[in-house]
């Protein structure tokens, strides 16, 4: 499977959790340990190694918080 990587622009996240519902490998979670500049728990990834770079999370994010990279064969 292709390797992927995601980046979260934490302070833009509004903690809506939509991205956590679409990850095929279930690694997108809310970071309950942190609060961002807006006072929300920002979304994050629990295990980056599993990321396949499908961009589902970024696609459903209403606020363009997520940037996705994928390994180019």
């Amino acid at each position: 499977m292709a390797k992927g990587k995601v980046y979260f622009d934490d302070d833009i996240c509004k903690g809506c959790e939509l991205c956590t519902t679409v990850c095929p490998v279930d690694i997108v979670i809310m970071d309950k340990e942190r609060i961002n500049a807006k006072g929300y728990h920002p979304a994050t990834v629990s295990d980056m190694d599993k990321c396949i770079g499908c961009a589902n999370c970024a696609t459903i994010c209403p606020d363009s918080v997520i940037t996705v990279e994928r390994e180019k064969k």
Binding site: K3, T59, I66, E69, E71, K72
Partner: peptide, 18 residues
Amino acid sequence: MMQVVYEKTKGLTDKQTH
């Protein structure tokens, strides 16, 4: 080599939405 496959579009400004 990692390639960006999804990023914020240039079609939107930098302003965060309300």
